[in-house]
Amino acid sequence: MGDQKTDLYFVFMNFDSEYERLRADRSMEGKEKLDAYLSNKHDQLLEKLLEPNTYKKKSSLAIVDGFSVEITPEQATTVRSAKEVRVVEKNQELH
């Protein structure tokens, strides 16, 4: 699988009441808790769905409960089918 071409995808999650609760806390501590919660949540989803060392998570996006990840088109299909996921979109470069 190491030879397959990967692209950057953005993954947006379904409604999560814990995310909404944490996002409401605008303090620095609240921001840190939200960032840690999302990073862990996104990592766990990827670990559950994909083989280790076949993807590279780039960042978690606190403002939208999403993340960016370098994966193959086949992996994008797998992630797209997860019940926790709302949308998976391939990054579109503007020229």
Score class of each variant (00 low, 15 high):
S17V: 08
E18N: 11
R86N: 12
R26H: 13
L49G: 00
G2H: 04
A62L: 15
L45V: 02
V87D: 10
G2D: 03
E93H: 11
L50N: 05
L8E: 12
D43R: 11
L38P: 01
E20V: 11
V85P: 03
E29V: 07
I63K: 08
L50S: 04
I63R: 09
L8T: 15
K33H: 08
E29D: 15
E74N: 06
S17F: 10
S60H: 12
A62T: 14
E89M: 10
E89I: 08
L50A: 03
V79S: 02
T54R: 03
D35A: 13
E29H: 06
K90E: 12
Y9I: 01
R26D: 07
L8I: 15
S59Y: 05
V79G: 06
L50Y: 02
N40G: 06
L49T: 06
F10P: 00
P52S: 06
K83P: 08
E84H: 05
E84P: 04
T6K: 15
N14E: 14
D3N: 14
L46R: 10
M1S: 11
D3M: 13
P73A: 02
A24Y: 05
F15R: 15
M13T: 03
H42Y: 08
E74R: 04
V88L: 02
V69N: 04
T54D: 05
T72S: 14
K33F: 01
F67Q: 06
L49A: 09
G2N: 07
M13D: 00
A24P: 05
Y55C: 07
V87W: 10
F12N: 08
V64P: 04
K31D: 11
L38M: 13
K57M: 15
A36F: 05
V85N: 00
F10R: 15
S39I: 06
E47V: 05
S59T: 14
V87G: 00
Y9Q: 04
A76K: 06
M1D: 07
M1G: 15
L38I: 12
A36T: 11
G2P: 00
E51T: 11
N91R: 09
G66S: 01
S60P: 03
S60I: 08
L45C: 04
L94Q: 14
F12E: 12
K58I: 15
F67S: 05
N14Y: 06
R23G: 03
M1H: 10
V11D: 07
P73Q: 08
K90N: 09
G30D: 04
P52K: 05
E84D: 11
V87F: 12
S39H: 10
F15H: 14
L34K: 04
E93R: 12
D25N: 09
K31C: 08
G30W: 03
F67Y: 12
S17A: 11
T54G: 07
D65S: 14
K5T: 09
S59W: 01
K58W: 10
I63S: 13
L61G: 01
K41I: 00
G2F: 02
F67R: 08
E89L: 08
S68M: 12
G30P: 01
V85T: 03
M28I: 13
S39G: 09
A62C: 13
N53Y: 10
K33Y: 02
I63G: 02
